[in-house]
Write a protein that binds this DNA or RNA. Structure first.
Lengths: 219, 219
DNA sequence: GCTGAGTCTGTACGCTGTACAGAGATCGAG
DNA sequence: CTCGATCTCTGTACAGCGTACAGACTCAGC
């Protein structure tokens, strides 16, 4: 057995506290100090469990991913497309539940054990769908790109990073920094704006997923 | 004319300085203070031009996007698929040139004027490819998801956010925080790892793009 | 019982974004 | 030409951040 006093915390507890803060008070509220406060230790005690903050955040993301059961992947009573849909929706729901978490996803990509298991299963599933080993690998990556990209863009839209200033000078604030650009090149009510705004929904998510899958395993 | 002294800077200059820092010293080096130092003013002088740091970063991203000429979009001597490839590669190249910039992309999505113009053109192009108005909109969004997702994941991989610690205890450091998880669930040499590592390339980017396009405009 | 490793606390450093007050420059109006 | 309004920029300051360092305490094994 190791010497020294018993640990008063666990990685689990720390990640849990971070997750709680993330959900309750947004991504900016997740600091070493607030996490430590949440579990009742001095801020630097966390460095006993994780090498730095980035590691904590990676563990948070991994836990979020790991909350999804992997059983669906191999449930052969469903057609594989159905299973992929299911898994994709699950991942999306879990991550969008904590909008602040998502911006972490892409800064430190999925290299936690649970994320790896996830990727592994996805690979198997695509092989089962009839793809060659190489195609399955490429398709798996493409799919992950679509999933994470979608989720990230959606999360960015609904993140509480927009504390809604007094609306009076919101447009002015928004234009600040683009003053050198003629006003007419601001397509304020243009179609592209509507696209971004209106199609952010489960509906659009599934529509895109379906098309991507069509492209990946067609013929 | 407005009263007050002449401005000694411009939004352009500030964004330029930020971009320079981004390229030369990485994303973490872009602070209000360093930008101000670069252009030779006090840190808070920047607040005359931008409401806050996020606005500066949004302008940076918009500038990066805007560096791409929009002419390719409407050059009807090329087939539309070729044009999309061209434009996608251009965007990717421009953003990966400044790896630090990419993590900003998803935190504050593209709402700058140049980004909007970009989206607008993409929409037209897809309509030209024969899609209905609604399908073009959805496809446009899906395509943007793929582009930004790809680029973000690639940038995360090659970002200088990995200062490479002394390699002796790199694995130990890496495992820290996952100690509760049995070692055998660490698929260290698993296929999914290779997927993530090996297929990050222009090749994979184009492969995926082609499949996504196949899915979007098949029939 | 001693040794030495391991866990936690207190303190401190250098950095961040940005709010606030005021100095100086420049304009339009009288 | 003067005056007051208005704008830009500086100095200073604050609260918060991640984390390095030194030391107090607790325990397993000799």
């Amino acid at each position: 057995m190791k010497p020294g006093p018993k640990r008063s915390l666990s990685e689990e507890a720390i990640v849990g506290a971070a997750l709680k803060l993330l959900g309750e008070r947004g991504g900016d509220a997740v600091s070493m100090r607030s996490i430590a406060g949440e579990v009742g230790v001095a801020p630097n005690a966390i460095y006993t469990y994780f090498p730095d903050k980035a590691a904590v955040l990676r563990a948070v993301v991994d836990r979020l991913i790991g909350e999804q059961s992997l059983d669906v992947f191999s449930d052969r009573t469903m057609p594989w497309r159905h299973r992929i849909r299911e898994v994709a929706l699950g991942l999306r729901a879990r991550l969008l539940d904590h909008p602040g978490a998502t911006r972490l996803l892409l800064g430190a990509p999925m290299d936690g054990p649970r994320a790896l298991a996830y990727g592994e299963k996805l690979l198997d599933l695509l092989a089962e769908a009839g793809l060659s080993e190489e195609d399955a690998a490429r398709a798996s990556y493409t799919l992950i790109v679509y999933l994470l990209g979608s989720i990230a863009l959606e999360a960015a839209e609904l993140d509480p990073a927009a504390p809604t200033p007094p609306e009076d000078d919101r447009i002015a604030q928004r234009r600040k920094g683009f003053e050198a650009i003629p006003a007419e090149s601001f397509p304020r009510t243009a179609a592209s704006v509507d696209v971004m705004a209106a199609y952010i929904s489960t509906d659009q998510f599934l529509w895109g997923l379906e098309r991507v899958l069509d492209g990946l395993v067609r013929d």
